[in-house]
C-alpha cells in the first residue's frame, strides 16, 4: 500500500499548478531558453562570385540532382531542362545513371511531372535504351498497378514507349514475361480466382472494381492495347530473326554465334551469379518458350476475358478484337 500511495503522490505532482501571485513575475517554463546573449559578428556563408556561367555538364548534373526536390514545379522544370539537353546533343552522363535518377518519377504525384517525364523518355536515344530496359520495366509495372488512375495512364504511356523502342529485349529479360502477364491479368480482372468461394461473383467484382475507378473504360481500352503490344513483342512473328539465322557465307557456319555479342549480359540466361530462379523470374529468351508459358499460364483466361470484352462492344470491343488478332497470330505456329 505504501508503494502505491507514493506512486499516487508522484503522479499528482505533475498536475499541480504553480501559484501565480499578483505583482510577481511569472515563473519561467522549464523549457525556457535564454536569448539574452549578443553576437559580436555575423558570419555569412561564402557565396560564389564566379562571373562565367557553369558548364552545361555541371548544369545537367545539377538538374539531375534537383529531380528529388520537394517542389513539383522544380521537378518539372528540371525535367524540361533535361529534355532539351538530351535532345540537343550527346549525353553528358551515361544513360544508366540518368535512368536511375528519373525512374522514380514514373510514380510522381504530379501529373505535369509525369507528362514531362514521358517527353524526356521519348527524347532519349533509342538504341541505348535497348540495353537499359531492365531498370525501367519494374517501375513501369509499379505505375500500371498504382492506386491512382492518373498514374496508371501515364505509366501505360511509358510502357508503350518502352515496347516500341525495345520490345524484343524487354520480353527476354529475366522475370519480365511472366510477371508482366500476371500483372495484366490482374489489372484486367482476368486472373484465375484463387478463393474458390467467390467463383460466381467474379463478374460482379470486376464490374465493381471498374466502376470504382474514374474513367475506367478509357483505361481498360488502354490496357488492352498495351497488352496487344506486349504480346506482339513477345510472341509475334519475327521475320528478321529467321533471316538472321540464314547462313550467308559458305565456308563459315553459324557465324553469329562466334561473333562478339551485341547486347549486354549475353550469358544472362545461365544465371551464374544471381539467386536461383523459379518459373516466375525465369528469363524466356526465345519465342517458343514464351508461347509455351503463355499457353500454360494465361491463354485460357485471356480468351475468356476477350469473350466478355467483345460483348461490350464499342471501343472496348474494338480493342478486344485487336488483342484477339494478336493472340491468334502469336499462337499460330505453336505445337507442344
Amino acid at each position: 500500500m505504501a508503494a502505491s500511495a507514493r506512486k499516487k503522490k508522484e503522479k499528482k505532482k505533475d498536475f499541480q499548478k504553480a501559484k501565480l501571485k499578483v505583482g510577481k513575475t511569472k515563473a519561467r517554463p522549464d523549457s525556457f531558453t535564454s536569448t539574452s546573449f549578443k553576437a559580436k559578428s555575423i558570419v555569412l556563408n561564402p557565396q560564389s562570385l564566379a562571373t562565367s556561367a557553369p558548364s552545361p555538364t555541371l548544369q545537367f548534373n545539377h538538374h539531375l540532382s534537383l529531380l528529388t526536390s520537394k517542389s513539383e514545379n522544380q521537378r518539372r522544370d528540371s525535367l524540361a531542362y533535361l529534355t532539351t539537353a538530351v535532345a540537343s546533343g550527346p549525353l553528358p552522363q551515361p544513360l544508366a545513371v540518368i535512368l536511375e535518377k528519373i525512374r522514380p518519377l514514373l510514380l510522381d504525384s504530379s501529373h505535369a511531372v509525369r507528362q514531362q517525364l514521358n517527353k524526356l523518355l521519348r527524347a532519349l536515344p533509342a538504341e541505348e535504351i535497348t540495353s537499359n530496359a531492365g531498370s525501367l520495366i519494374l517501375l513501369t509495372r509499379a505505375g500500371m498497378t498504382h492506386l491512382s488512375n492518373d498514374v496508371r495512364l501515364t505509366a501505360l504511356d511509358a510502357f508503350e514507349w518502352l515496347l516500341e523502342t525495345a520490345g524484343k529485349e524487354v520480353v527476354g529479360i529475366a522475370g519480365v514475361w511472366v510477371k508482366t502477364l500476371k500483372c495484366f491479368l490482374g489489372l484486367l480482372g482476368w486472373q484465375k480466382n484463387q478463393d474458390d468461394n467467390a467463383e460466381n461473383s467474379k463478374w460482379s467484382i470486376i464490374k465493381q472494381a471498374r466502376a470504382r475507378l474514374a474513367g475506367a473504360d478509357k483505361i481498360f481500352v488502354k490496357q488492352l492495347l498495351a497488352l496487344t503490344l506486349f504480346l506482339d513483342a513477345g510472341i509475334g512473328q519475327q521475320e528478321q530473326e529467321l533471316s538472321k539465322l540464314q547462313p550467308s557465307t559458305f565456308p563459315l557456319w553459324h557465324t553469329q554465334f562466334h561473333m562478339l555479342p551485341h547486347r549486354p549480359n549475353p550469358y544472362g540466361y545461365l544465371n551464374l551469379a544471381g539467386a536461383a530462379r523459379d518459373e516466375e523470374s525465369e528469363a524466356y529468351e526465345d519465342r517458343l518458350d514464351r508461347q509455351r508459358v503463355f499457353k500454360k499460364l494465361a491463354l485460357a483466361q485471356v480468351e475468356d476475358g476477350l469473350e466478355q470484352a467483345r460483348k461490350e462492344g464499342g471501343e472496348v470491343g474494338r480493342a478486344a478484337a485487336a488483342l484477339r488478332r494478336a493472340v491468334n497470330l502469336g499462337m499460330m505456329g505453336f505445337v507442344e
Binding site: T145, I205, A209, R212
Partner: peptide, 10 residues
C-alpha cells in the same frame, strides 16, 4: 472479396 482486384494490384 469485392476488393480482391485492388488488393492484387497493390
Amino acid at each position: 472479396p469485392s476488393y480482391q482486384i485492388e488488393f492484387g494490384n497493390q
